[in-house]
Protein backbone atom coordinates (compact mmCIF):
# COMPACT_ATOMS: atom_id res chain seq x y z
CA UNK A 1 0.00 0.00 0.00
CA UNK A 2 1.37 3.40 -0.93
CA UNK A 3 2.19 5.90 1.78
CA UNK A 4 2.99 9.57 1.72
CA UNK A 5 6.58 10.17 2.75
CA UNK A 6 8.02 13.43 4.06
CA UNK A 7 11.62 13.88 2.97
CA UNK A 8 14.27 16.49 3.66
CA UNK A 9 16.87 16.27 0.91
CA UNK A 10 20.10 18.23 1.02
CA UNK A 11 20.63 20.20 -2.19
CA UNK A 12 23.54 22.39 -3.06
CA UNK A 13 27.21 22.38 -3.94
CA UNK A 14 30.55 23.03 -2.26
CA UNK A 15 29.80 26.70 -1.68
CA UNK A 16 26.21 26.66 -0.50
CA UNK A 17 23.22 24.44 0.10
CA UNK A 18 20.56 23.30 2.49
CA UNK A 19 17.78 20.85 3.26
CA UNK A 20 14.69 21.04 1.09
CA UNK A 21 11.33 19.57 2.08
CA UNK A 22 9.50 17.35 -0.32
CA UNK A 23 6.58 14.94 -0.13
CA UNK A 24 6.54 11.82 -2.25
CA UNK A 25 4.62 8.57 -2.52
CA UNK A 26 6.33 5.38 -1.47
CA UNK A 27 5.06 1.95 -2.39
CA UNK A 28 5.30 -1.18 -0.33
CA UNK A 29 8.71 -2.83 -0.51
CA UNK A 30 10.51 0.24 -1.81
CA UNK A 31 13.89 1.41 -0.67
CA UNK A 32 15.08 4.98 -0.13
CA UNK A 33 16.80 5.02 -3.52
CA UNK A 34 13.41 4.28 -5.17
CA UNK A 35 11.80 7.32 -3.60
CA UNK A 36 14.80 9.49 -4.45
CA UNK A 37 14.37 8.42 -8.06
CA UNK A 38 10.66 9.30 -7.86
CA UNK A 39 11.52 12.72 -6.49
CA UNK A 40 14.05 13.12 -9.30
CA UNK A 41 11.50 12.10 -11.93
CA UNK A 42 8.56 14.10 -10.64
CA UNK A 43 9.76 17.06 -8.64
CA UNK A 44 13.51 17.73 -8.78
CA UNK A 45 14.69 16.77 -12.25
CA UNK A 46 18.20 18.08 -11.67
CA UNK A 47 18.74 16.27 -8.35
CA UNK A 48 22.19 14.67 -8.47
CA UNK A 49 22.50 11.18 -7.00
CA UNK A 50 25.10 8.52 -7.67
CA UNK A 51 23.80 4.97 -8.08
CA UNK A 52 24.31 1.91 -10.19
CA UNK A 53 23.35 -1.66 -9.25
CA UNK A 54 20.46 -1.15 -6.78
CA UNK A 55 21.48 -4.42 -5.21
CA UNK A 56 23.94 -3.40 -2.51
CA UNK A 57 26.94 -4.58 -4.47
CA UNK A 58 28.36 -1.58 -6.32
CA UNK A 59 28.70 0.76 -3.34
CA UNK A 60 27.63 3.82 -5.35
CA UNK A 61 24.54 5.07 -3.50
CA UNK A 62 26.30 5.79 -0.20
CA UNK A 63 24.66 8.69 1.63
CA UNK A 64 23.46 9.60 5.08
CA UNK A 65 19.88 8.77 5.97
CA UNK A 66 18.64 10.29 9.20
CA UNK A 67 22.25 10.99 10.03
CA UNK A 68 23.50 7.42 9.55
CA UNK A 69 25.85 6.44 6.72
CA UNK A 70 23.95 3.89 4.66
CA UNK A 71 23.37 2.53 1.18
CA UNK A 72 20.15 4.07 -0.14
CA UNK A 73 19.39 0.93 -2.13
CA UNK A 74 19.53 -1.25 0.98
CA UNK A 75 17.48 0.98 3.27
CA UNK A 76 13.84 -0.04 3.35
CA UNK A 77 11.33 2.78 3.56
CA UNK A 78 9.26 0.51 5.80
CA UNK A 79 12.02 0.62 8.41
CA UNK A 80 10.94 4.18 9.27
CA UNK A 81 7.73 4.92 11.20
CA UNK A 82 4.88 6.34 9.07
CA UNK A 83 5.00 9.77 10.70
CA UNK A 84 8.79 10.13 10.65
CA UNK A 85 10.43 12.62 8.36
CA UNK A 86 13.43 11.15 6.56
CA UNK A 87 16.49 13.36 6.16
CA UNK A 88 18.84 12.53 3.30
CA UNK A 89 22.24 14.18 2.97
CA UNK A 90 25.47 13.47 1.12
CA UNK A 91 28.36 11.81 2.95
CA UNK A 92 29.64 14.37 5.44
CA UNK A 93 33.28 13.29 5.49
CA UNK A 94 33.99 14.18 1.87
CA UNK A 95 33.73 17.35 -0.24
CA UNK A 96 30.34 17.72 -1.83
CA UNK A 97 30.11 18.05 -5.62
CA UNK A 98 26.37 18.48 -6.08
CA UNK A 99 23.36 17.48 -3.99
CA UNK A 100 23.90 13.88 -2.85
CA UNK A 101 27.11 13.33 -4.80
CA UNK A 102 30.45 13.69 -3.04
CA UNK A 103 34.05 13.64 -4.20
CA UNK A 104 35.48 10.38 -2.85
CA UNK A 105 38.82 10.67 -4.69
CA UNK A 106 40.58 10.81 -1.30
CA UNK A 107 40.02 7.06 -1.13
CA UNK A 108 41.54 6.38 -4.53
CA UNK A 109 44.65 8.34 -3.58
CA UNK A 110 44.97 6.32 -0.40
CA UNK A 111 44.49 3.08 -2.34
CA UNK A 112 47.44 3.96 -4.57
CA UNK A 113 49.68 4.48 -1.53
CA UNK A 114 49.38 0.84 -0.47
CA UNK A 115 51.99 -1.41 -2.07
CA UNK A 116 50.50 -4.26 -4.09
CA UNK A 117 50.94 -7.97 -3.38
CA UNK A 118 54.55 -9.09 -3.80
CA UNK A 119 54.83 -12.76 -4.84
CA UNK A 120 57.84 -14.94 -3.96
CA UNK A 121 60.81 -14.48 -6.27
CA UNK A 122 60.65 -16.81 -9.24
CA UNK A 123 57.03 -17.80 -8.71
CA UNK A 124 55.25 -17.85 -12.04
CA UNK A 125 51.57 -17.06 -12.67
CA UNK A 126 49.47 -20.15 -12.04
CA UNK A 127 51.95 -21.68 -9.61
CA UNK A 128 50.73 -20.33 -6.25
CA UNK A 129 48.66 -22.76 -4.16
CA UNK A 130 46.91 -21.86 -0.94
CA UNK A 131 45.05 -23.97 1.60
CA UNK A 132 41.38 -23.15 2.12
CA UNK A 133 41.91 -22.01 5.74
CA UNK A 134 44.39 -19.40 4.56
CA UNK A 135 42.09 -18.25 1.77
CA UNK A 136 39.11 -17.89 4.08
CA UNK A 137 40.83 -15.47 6.38
CA UNK A 138 41.36 -12.81 3.75
CA UNK A 139 38.19 -13.70 1.85
CA UNK A 140 36.18 -11.72 4.37
CA UNK A 141 38.09 -8.58 3.44
CA UNK A 142 37.56 -9.21 -0.27
CA UNK A 143 33.82 -8.74 0.26
CA UNK A 144 34.44 -4.99 0.47
CA UNK A 145 32.34 -3.14 -2.15
CA UNK A 146 34.16 0.16 -1.61
CA UNK A 147 31.07 2.08 -0.64
CA UNK A 148 33.33 4.07 1.71
CA UNK A 149 30.69 4.21 4.42
CA UNK A 150 33.40 3.10 6.87
CA UNK A 151 35.60 5.96 5.71
CA UNK A 152 32.69 8.37 6.05
CA UNK A 153 31.82 7.39 9.59
CA UNK A 154 35.41 7.22 10.87
CA UNK A 155 35.73 10.20 13.17
CA UNK A 156 39.49 10.43 12.60
CA UNK A 157 38.84 12.05 9.23
CA UNK A 158 35.16 12.89 9.49
CA UNK A 159 35.79 15.23 12.42
CA UNK A 160 39.36 16.22 11.57
CA UNK A 161 40.00 17.19 7.97
CA UNK A 162 43.69 17.73 8.75
CA UNK A 163 44.13 14.00 9.49
CA UNK A 164 43.41 13.03 5.91
CA UNK A 165 47.07 13.51 5.04
CA UNK A 166 48.27 10.89 7.49
CA UNK A 167 45.36 8.48 7.86
CA UNK A 168 44.32 5.88 5.32
CA UNK A 169 41.09 4.80 7.01
CA UNK A 170 39.40 1.49 7.80
CA UNK A 171 38.82 0.46 4.20
CA UNK A 172 42.55 0.45 3.60
CA UNK A 173 43.43 -1.14 6.92
CA UNK A 174 41.50 -4.21 5.78
CA UNK A 175 43.49 -4.12 2.55
CA UNK A 176 46.76 -3.94 4.48
CA UNK A 177 45.59 -6.70 6.84
CA UNK A 178 44.61 -8.90 3.92
CA UNK A 179 48.07 -8.58 2.43
CA UNK A 180 49.94 -8.88 5.73
CA UNK A 181 48.06 -12.11 6.51
CA UNK A 182 48.68 -13.51 3.04
CA UNK A 183 51.03 -16.52 3.29
CA UNK A 184 52.70 -15.73 -0.02
CA UNK A 185 53.13 -11.97 0.28
CA UNK A 186 56.81 -11.19 0.49
CA UNK A 187 56.65 -7.54 1.55
CA UNK A 188 57.60 -7.80 5.19
CA UNK A 189 57.29 -4.22 6.40
CA UNK A 190 53.55 -3.71 5.98
CA UNK A 191 53.09 -3.53 9.74
CA UNK A 192 55.57 -0.71 10.12
CA UNK A 193 54.11 1.13 7.14
CA UNK A 194 50.61 0.71 8.53
CA UNK A 195 51.69 2.46 11.71
CA UNK A 196 54.09 5.04 10.34
CA UNK A 197 52.62 5.94 6.96
CA UNK A 198 48.98 4.94 7.01
CA UNK A 199 48.10 6.12 10.52
CA UNK A 200 46.97 2.87 12.15
CA UNK A 201 47.80 4.35 15.56
CA UNK A 202 45.25 7.10 15.00
CA UNK A 203 42.43 4.56 15.18
CA UNK A 204 40.93 4.38 18.66
CA UNK A 205 38.84 1.32 17.76
CA UNK A 206 35.42 2.78 18.43
CA UNK A 207 34.07 0.32 15.87
CA UNK A 208 31.87 2.70 13.89
CA UNK A 209 33.36 1.31 10.67
CA UNK A 210 32.14 -2.17 11.62
CA UNK A 211 28.70 -0.84 12.56
CA UNK A 212 28.06 0.74 9.15
CA UNK A 213 29.62 -1.90 6.88
CA UNK A 214 26.85 -3.20 4.57
CA UNK A 215 28.87 -6.36 3.93
CA UNK A 216 29.15 -7.01 7.68
CA UNK A 217 32.92 -7.24 7.52
CA UNK A 218 34.24 -7.24 11.07
CA UNK A 219 36.68 -4.51 10.20
CA UNK A 220 37.81 -3.70 13.73
CA UNK A 221 37.97 -7.17 15.24
CA UNK A 222 39.40 -8.99 12.24
CA UNK A 223 41.60 -6.40 10.57
CA UNK A 224 42.40 -3.31 12.63
CA UNK A 225 42.96 -4.92 16.02
CA UNK A 226 44.99 -7.83 14.57
CA UNK A 227 47.10 -5.25 12.72
CA UNK A 228 47.54 -3.24 15.91
CA UNK A 229 48.72 -6.40 17.65
CA UNK A 230 51.12 -7.14 14.81
CA UNK A 231 52.47 -3.61 15.10
CA UNK A 232 53.00 -4.16 18.83
CA UNK A 233 54.97 -7.31 17.92
CA UNK A 234 57.46 -5.35 15.86
CA UNK A 235 57.47 -1.92 17.47
CA UNK A 236 56.39 -1.91 21.10
CA UNK A 237 57.01 -5.35 22.58
CA UNK A 238 60.63 -5.66 23.79
CA UNK A 239 60.30 -9.40 24.39
CA UNK A 240 59.04 -10.07 20.88
CA UNK A 241 61.77 -7.83 19.54
CA UNK A 242 64.38 -9.77 21.46
CA UNK A 243 62.91 -13.03 20.23
CA UNK A 244 63.03 -11.82 16.66
CA UNK A 245 66.70 -10.90 17.05
CA UNK A 246 67.72 -14.17 18.69
CA UNK A 247 65.70 -16.45 16.45
CA UNK A 248 66.14 -14.30 13.34
CA UNK A 249 62.40 -14.19 12.87
CA UNK A 250 60.39 -11.39 11.39
CA UNK A 251 61.21 -8.34 13.43
CA UNK A 252 61.80 -4.64 13.06
CA UNK A 253 62.84 -4.06 9.50
Amino acid sequence: MARKLKLRIWRGNSTDGGLQNVEVEANEGEVVLDVIHRVQAEQMNDLAVRWNCKAGKCGSCSMEINGKPRLACMTQVASFPDDQEITITPLRAFPVIKDLVTDVSFNYKKAMEIPAFVPPVGMKPGEPRMAQVDVERSQEFRKCIECFLCQDTCHVIRDHEENKKSFAGPRFFIRIAELDMHPLDMLRNRKQKAQEEHGLGMCNITKCCTEVCPEHIRITDNAIIPMKERVVDVKYDPLRWLGSVIRKREGIL
Binding site: R92, C208, V231, V232
Partner: peptide, 25 residues
Amino acid sequence: CAVAEPHAKYTGETRAPLIMQNSHR
Protein backbone atom coordinates in the same frame (compact mmCIF):
# COMPACT_ATOMS: atom_id res chain seq x y z
CA CYS B 1 28.90 6.96 15.17
CA ALA B 2 28.34 9.92 12.84
CA VAL B 3 27.97 12.28 15.78
CA ALA B 4 30.60 15.01 15.59
CA GLU B 5 33.04 14.99 18.47
CA PRO B 6 33.72 18.21 20.39
CA HIS B 7 37.54 18.09 20.21
CA ALA B 8 39.47 20.46 17.97
CA LYS B 9 42.44 18.10 17.54
CA TYR B 10 42.86 14.37 17.48
CA THR B 11 46.00 12.24 17.46
CA GLY B 12 44.54 8.91 18.57
CA GLU B 13 46.91 6.43 20.14
CA THR B 14 50.03 7.74 18.46
CA ARG B 15 51.59 9.60 21.39
CA ALA B 16 51.79 9.61 25.18
CA PRO B 17 49.84 8.77 27.19
CA LEU B 18 47.59 6.78 24.84
CA ILE B 19 50.48 5.06 23.12
CA MET B 20 50.69 3.07 26.36
CA GLN B 21 47.59 1.20 25.21
CA ASN B 22 50.10 -0.96 23.35
CA SER B 23 51.06 -2.51 26.67
CA HIS B 24 47.80 -4.45 26.77
CA ARG B 25 49.50 -7.80 26.23
